Computed example of a mutant assay.
Amino acid sequence: MKAIEQDDINDNETNSQTFIRSLARGLSVLEVFGNRMDGLSSSEIAGAAGLDRATTRRILLTLQKAKYIRQIDDRYYLTAQILNFGYGYLSSLPFWELARPIMQELVAEIHESSSAAVLESGEVVYVARVRSNSRMVDVARTVGSRVPAYCTSLGHVLLAGLPEQERNDVLSEITFKKYTENTITNKKQLSKALDNVAQQGWAISEQQLEIGLCSIAVPLHDSKGKVIAALNVSVQTPRVSTDTLINKLLPALKLTAAEIDRAARARAE
């Protein structure tokens, strides 16, 4: 997760009398845990959150009292209570309640895994995932996982669906990293790719994030036609060719997305 920057905290505090600095610092501490299964020491947390040790200690004691973290020896771990926030977000979106069973039908038909994701701060955040039981090897993505938007099919669909100014704002904040030889590494190249995605209505990523991983994605819309999420199918190469991905899996993916969109419109009526 991306921790709240202290510069942001100071700016917001200056510009708003209602900004609660201590709350922002507490959220920063929670965010630095990310996907760490081995816990963090207080000094590691302080460094990652940009806080002094005394402030970090007070926040950790507060979070322990509230049962959001626990301490084992000299390391701190998130507790299951933190899931209340994630489940609260997902349960507030009946869209995913509609999407999951439809995604399950797609996976049963094509025997490949499928995911749905939203865009947040230049990253793709997985909000639903259905894995294929027929595959022994699968991409280790779970609900809540984050990956860069600029080198994924989900990300390209989501970025392409943004209004022009908003898209430019997001692109200006990206720090490009070359994950593979196929990774897009500059804004001009990405902008051109996104224009193509917006025109054709789908995106494909061929081993841009990981060697051996290809995916294809399409947009999901709200009742007003706005792109609010993306749906993909991911496969391992060379087991599935690019031609198969486009000519056989993409049509099924489009039909699934259309069904999810119809369900979303019906729910909104």
Results as ranks from 00 to 15, higher is better:
28 S>L: 02
75 R>F: 09
100 R>D: 07
185 T>Q: 07
156 H>I: 00
157 V>G: 04
105 E>N: 06
26 G>S: 15
260 I>E: 00
95 F>I: 07
154 L>W: 05
143 V>Q: 08
219 P>E: 15
135 R>A: 11
137 V>N: 15
141 R>Y: 13
74 D>F: 13
102 I>S: 07
90 L>A: 03
11 D>S: 09
189 Q>A: 12
199 Q>E: 07
220 L>P: 02
6 Q>N: 04
136 M>S: 14
166 E>N: 09
2 K>M: 11
194 L>H: 05
192 K>S: 14
15 N>D: 11
143 V>I: 15
177 K>A: 11
232 N>Y: 01
5 E>K: 15
173 E>R: 15
137 V>Q: 15
214 C>L: 14
198 A>Y: 00
76 Y>F: 14
197 V>E: 03
175 T>E: 01
105 E>F: 00
1 M>V: 04
18 T>E: 14
221 H>K: 06
67 K>A: 04
202 W>C: 09
52 D>H: 12
94 P>Y: 12
62 T>S: 12
201 G>K: 02
129 R>G: 07
40 L>P: 00
245 L>M: 08
48 A>D: 06
114 S>Y: 01
45 I>S: 08
31 E>H: 04
53 R>I: 13
24 A>S: 12
124 V>D: 02
92 S>M: 09
10 N>L: 15
41 S>T: 13
162 L>S: 00
137 V>M: 15
83 L>F: 14
231 L>C: 03
